[in-house]
């Protein structure tokens, strides 16, 4: 388990982390999710030993690691821009940690070949990083980090520099890899879809603090505050309450507790249908229903309908 205990960090006047505490379960894949400048990368770098906290402690598997240099933390670190050793071949890149540890040559070669097979780069041993695509470079960087059998794998926006298609492929691949290798993994991302789709746990960060920690579903259904709710998905406001657009039920007839509204626009997005409405108070609301529901309601602009929050994940609007 990685335990972050009351960690604070300032760069000059800028507060990057403000008394942050977090526990990461052994063998889990945890995402640190937040907008840029929320402090998530700083937290990851402190766990990795690349920055020192101003106060607080980092405990890795029961040992206080706060003042342990990165060389001795037994971590693997993957950087957003790959940090490939440009003057070395793929083989030498992946072998680096083992060569530093003076492992016998045959053993290193064997391990490198095995890792390159795992990350799908078998046969690329003699290439240089400049001859690889971005996705391949990042997989090489991952093999390099895994080569030293780290106790913790730390990934700093690992797919942030890749195009959308490769990013989706790689994150699914990373999830499968994690299921095979089971190394405790902490992933920094600003992409809520990425976090939701691969993480076991998500810690949402904002303004140098952790806002909420939990399973993706739990965070989505029971956000503890408007920021978490808004960061994890779309939010509509209905008569003073925040509600997910798909949790707004639309009825053709008046029901108790429902709000009267006029349909201003109906947008068909394939299976989903987005309905833009206007309450009698003049407040605009956006709801999301399925195509089947839309067909049953025979909804069209200018119709008068009644709205109510159907799900239980609503919050008081500030």
């Amino acid at each position: 388990m990685i335990s972050v205990q009351g960690v604070s960090k300032q760069f000059g006047d800028y507060v990057a982390l403000d008394d942050v505490s977090l526990e990461i379960r052994d063998g889990s894949l945890t995402a640190l999710l937040g907008p840029s400048g929320s402090g998530k990368s700083t937290l990851l770098r402190i766990i990795g030993g690349l920055e020192t906290p101003d106060s607080g402690r980092i405990v890795i598997h029961g040992d206080d690691a706060t003042n342990v240099p990165p060389q001795k933390r037994e971590i693997g670190f993957v950087f957003q821009h790959y940090a490939a050793f440009k003057h070395m071949t793929v083989r030498d890149n992946v072998a680096f940690g083992l060569t530093i540890r003076r492992q016998p040559k045959e053993k290193v070669a064997e391990r490198v070949d095995e890792l390159l097979k795992i990350v799908g780069l078998a046969g690329y041993q003699k290439r240089y990083p400049s001859q690889l695509s971005g996705g391949q470079r990042q997989r090489m960087a991952l093999a390099r980090a895994l080569a030293v059998e780290p106790r913790v794998l730390l990934l700093d926006e690992p797919f942030g520099a890749l195009d959308a298609k490769v990013r989706t492929e790689l994150r699914e691949w990373l999830r499968r890899l994690h299921d095979e290798v089971h190394v405790t993994t902490l992933l920094v991302t600003h992409d809520q879809e990425e976090a939701m789709s691969i993480a076991d746990d998500i810690a949402v960060m904002d303004n140098a603090r952790i806002e909420q920690v939990g399973h993706p579903r739990e965070l989505y259904d029971n956000p503890s505050n408007p920021f978490v709710m808004g960061f994890l998905g779309e939010v509509s406001q209905l008569a003073g309450r925040l509600v997910r657009p798909h949790d707004i039920a639309i009825a053709a007839e008046s029901v108790a507790g429902a709000h009267e509204a006029m349909v201003s626009r109906v947008i068909h997005l394939g299976f989903e249908v987005r309905v833009e409405l206007m309450l009698t108070s003049g407040e605009a609301v956006s709801a999301q229903i399925t195509r089947t529901e839309a067909d049953e309601l025979e909804i069209g602009s200018g119709d008068i309908v009644w709205l109510r929050a159907a799900g239980n994940s609503t919050l008081e609007a500030i």
Binding site: P69, R73, I75, G76, G97
Partner: peptide, 9 residues
């Protein structure tokens, strides 16, 4: 690259 080398030992 220097940071990566440090994390690799």
């Amino acid at each position: 690259q220097e940071e990566a080398a440090a994390t690799l030992g």
